[in-house]
Design a binder for these strands. Structure first.
Length: 96
DNA sequence: ACTCTGACCCAGT
DNA sequence: AACTGGGCCAGAG
């Protein structure tokens, strides 16, 4: 199952700073994953220790079943959402 | 070697 | 805005 890749994915997620967000696609690209699906998968299994709430879908909305919890956590660290959607232009994390 | 099912993504109706 | 359909990858049955 490629533990190596899973590890890199967790690292990337863990490196997203408080007050910013990243998309599944971003994480996948940075970690070298072939598809964003894998990111969601990894988080679903062992994302409990990670800042999973900073990971959003490409359009800035969270995964449906998590929306409430996730938006609440983001709001708590200064990331404001307009309804379900977070303004990626403003909060998206770009590694430098 | 199938078919299903997902914290996905993109483009077209 | 709501639905497609195609592509993607890995587990489970």
């Amino acid at each position: 199952m490629n533990e190596e890749l899973h590890e890199r994915i967790r690292e990337v997620v863990a490196s997203v700073p408080e007050g910013t967000v990243a998309t599944y696609g971003d994480v996948a690209a940075l970690a070298g994953a072939t598809t964003p699906r894998l990111v969601g998968r990894v988080l679903a299994e062992d994302g409990h220790d990670l800042p999973w709430h900073r990971i959003l879908r490409a359009n800035g909305t969270p995964a449906p079943h998590l929306a409430r919890e996730q938006l609440a956590r983001l709001r708590a660290e200064g990331v404001l959402a307009d309804g379900q959607r977070v303004d990626l232009r403003r909060f998206r994390w770009r590694p430098s």
